[in-house]
């Protein structure tokens, strides 16, 4: 079971003032973001027009991670804090651990899509507190460990305990978007708004303790990844324990339609003076532009969110071209997007 360094939960549970939750919510924003580069790298490695279900499932999860990041930032703003997104601490070093010691040594890298990565990394990241029994992984872990879900629950509990009915943050900083349903992304003005919003994060990520579905009747992330791992759709099955089984249609997968990304490609691996390096710099410039645009969005310019959507497309297109580009000096490999925090000259 995926662990979180218990000190963060401890900090949440012992908080005496809303201000003490700021660093924890900042960590939450960082955590939600930190899963996106690994997921996107795997998705971008799928050759265009192939492995469509894999792409669709990862995409749907990435979109929800973006939603969770937005919710966490909205809660932080609602409590009166300031999300900090445009700095080097915000971006993890890949391969490496995720924020808050998630996973007790789980090392997350930026790699091409494979069922191994899905099982050993993505499902680990998203593993619920108590995976439902149709899941095939053994349940050897002990309940002394805490999950991301429990971390959010601790914050939720403290907000319930400490916050006034009307939250103190500047209401004009709340970010909403037409790209998300209003019942998933809503402005957080009150304590109850915050509590409801945290439930969305937990359930979309983990499902509930009795069902793999979240409030919107969609499979939680963990089970969506498990579908990819098993190559089968998880469907309702009244005869099965918990009412679901991996007895749905096959999910076709053609491993040869995955670009052979060099694992954890770094800018420094590319030869100086080459167009591959230019393309990578272009990618990281877009990534920086995106983070700085999101920083502005979450710090008083919520209308800028639309612009960042445009930057996401710039980033995506550059990344996908990189993935198709042979890696100079590394026969048999192509270039992965490095997601490095590099402040471009002039910024």
């Amino acid at each position: 079971m995926l662990q979180i360094d218990s000190k963060y939960i401890e900090k949440a549970l012992t908080a005496n003032a809303l201000e003490e939750l700021y660093p924890l919510l900042q960590k939450a924003v960082e955590l939600e973001h930190s899963t996106i580069p690994p997921y996107l790298t795997a998705m971008f490695s799928l050759k265009p027009g192939t492995n469509l279900v894999q792409r669709q499932i990862i995409h749907s999860i990435v979109i929800e991670e973006m939603l969770h990041m937005t919710i966490a930032a909205n809660i932080l703003n609602a409590l009166g804090g300031k999300p900090a997104i445009d700095n080097s601490h915000f971006v993890p070093e890949y391969p490496g651990p995720l924020p808050m010691g998630i996973g007790n040594g789980l090392i997350v890298g930026l790699e091409k899509y494979s069922t191994d990565v899905v099982k050993n990394v993505f499902m680990e990241i998203e593993e619920p507190e108590n995976p439902l029994v149709f899941k095939s992984v053994s349940l050897a872990a002990l309940p002394t460990f805490s999950t991301i879900g429990q971390f959010y629950q601790a914050i939720q509990k403290k907000i319930d305990e400490l916050a006034p009915h009307d939250l103190p943050g500047d209401k004009s900083k709340q970010v909403t978007s037409s790209f998300f349903p209003a019942d998933e992304l809503f402005p957080i003005y009150t304590k109850q708004n915050a509590i409801d919003a945290i439930n969305i994060i937990i359930e979309q990520g983990e499902g509930t303790s009795t069902s793999p579905l979240d409030q919107e009747d969609e499979l939680a992330h963990y089970y969506r990844f498990e579908e990819l791992y098993k190559g089968k759709r998880l469907v309702k099955n009244d005869a099965a324990p918990n009412g679901y089984s991996f007895s749905g249609p096959d999910i076709p997968y053609t491993p040869e339609d995955v670009f052979p990304l060099f694992p954890n490609t770094k800018t420094s691996m590319l030869p100086a003076g080459g167009e591959e390096l230019n393309r990578m710099n272009e990618f990281n410039t877009s990534y920086y532009s995106l983070l700085s645009g999101l920083h502005a969005t979450f710090n008083g310019q919520p209308e800028n969110l639309d612009n960042t959507v445009g930057v996401m497309y710039d980033l995506k297109l550059t990344a996908q071209k990189l993935c198709a580009t042979p890696f100079p000096g590394k026969p048999g490999y192509t270039i992965g997007p490095s997601f490095e925090f590099i402040v471009p000259a002039g910024s």
Partner: peptide, 10 residues
């Protein structure tokens, strides 16, 4: 440095 947009598309 003279640069283009940041936080919005190129």
């Amino acid at each position: 440095a003279v640069v283009g947009a940041e936080g919005r598309p190129t």
